[in-house]
């Protein structure tokens, strides 16, 4: 099986879906002549032309709304946000129009649109360019939120997102675009709303998504060396949430640690803890622990940035805590 980078997996997904359906177009800042700020759209302008790969002005609210309008009358836009930080300017269109229009119209309109781009820290980018914003979007009814970790999942889920008839928030990660993984050849479609059990073990359930999967995997390897085996559940889709997969695993291991890049307060992990405590309270042998980014604005200085981040050591410590094992 071929090993390809994240950006190439996304590029394949876009090219294949645009080839398959002429209603699909890609719009955003630097997507066309520049070939994408992160080179995800490399070569697509040459292949599909200027009406289907559209460079926009720096008007996130404007072009997000343009995409929503086009979706309401049957096109299938993919709107690239150069980063999800900038998409805060477009949030009005995403949460007020895309997410609500079907309900407000009593089922007369549908809004098949994908908003995608990098989310989370980029490395020394300071406070305004390092945010993980998935909890904000997961909060709103009417949206699906996708946050894959591996190139294969990214490809299969982006293709499924483009074919979905609902508005999708598709979160990539700036630090993952160069990460490689095996992607099976041929058509690859993965259903939204299905978590992936990336590793099996009976001692504890590690729940994560997006880039944090790699930290969780590293932590799991270290724990294995100490004889601790975890279920590593990669959610892949945050909404709809694969509740069954979470509960099945927690009922098996009786312990859970949730790993989230974003802030703790009102984070997605808080929702997962609520799910587990309300549905699997009697199965728990320890309080659920969360490993998250610290609740501070991200600093530029390396030492400050790293101190606020999730790392494998913190995950290892949290797993040992729920297992009541002393450190060192």
């Amino acid at each position: 099986m071929a090993e390809i980078a994240w950006r190439e997996a996304l590029n394949q997904a876009l090219a294949e879906e645009m080839e398959r359906d002429a209603n699909v177009f890609l719009m955003g800042e630097e997507v066309a002549r520049y070939d994408g700020a992160y080179k995800v759209s490399q070569g697509l302008l040459a292949k599909f032309g200027s009406a289907r790969v559209v460079d926009t002005p720096i008007s996130e609210l404007g072009f997000a709304g343009l995409g929503v309008g086009a979706a309401l009358v049957g096109l299938r836009p993919v709107i690239e946000m150069m980063t999800w930080n900038f998409a805060v300017l477009a949030m009005d269109q995403i949460v007020h129009n895309a997410a609500k229009v079907r309900q407000m119209s009593g089922g007369q309109l549908r809004c098949p649109i994908v908003f995608r781009g990098p989310n989370g820290a980029g490395g020394r980018l300071a406070a305004q360019h390092s945010q993980s914003l998935e909890a904000n979007y997961a909060h709103f009814p009417g949206l699906k939120v996708v946050a894959p970790s591996t190139p294969a999942d990214a490809k299969g889920l982006l293709k499924a997102s483009i074919r979905d008839d609902n508005p999708i928030v598709f979160l990539e990660a700036e630090l993952l675009y160069g990460v490689k993984g095996e992607v099976p050849p041929g058509e690859l479609l993965l259903p939204l709303g299905q978590a992936s059990l990336k590793r099996e073990g009976s001692d504890c359930t590690l729940i994560t998504w997006s880039r944090m999967y790699y930290h969780a995997e590293e932590a799991a390897r270290q724990l294995e060396a100490e004889g601790i085996h975890v279920d590593l559940l990669d959610l892949r889709t945050l909404k709809p949430l694969d509740e069954a997969a979470i509960l099945t695993s927690v009922r098996k291991t009786n312990r859970a640690v949730i790993v989230e890049e974003g802030w703790s307060f009102c984070g997605v992990g808080a929702q997962l803890v609520d799910l587990i405590q309300s549905q699997a309270f009697d199965d728990l042998d320890a309080p659920v622990q969360r490993v998250t980014g610290l609740d501070v604005n991200r600093s530029y200085a390396a030492v400050l940035e790293h101190a606020a981040e999730v790392n494998p050591a913190r995950i290892v410590a949290a797993v040992k805590q729920v297992l009541y094992r002393e450190e060192g």
């Binding site: 343009l66 929503v68 309008g69 009005d92």
Partner: peptide, 14 residues
């Protein structure tokens, strides 16, 4: 909020 949507329906027509 509806103003960008109008550009989208017009975009679709073109």
């Amino acid at each position: 909020g509806q103003i960008p949507l109008a550009a989208g329906t017009a975009f679709a027509a073109r």
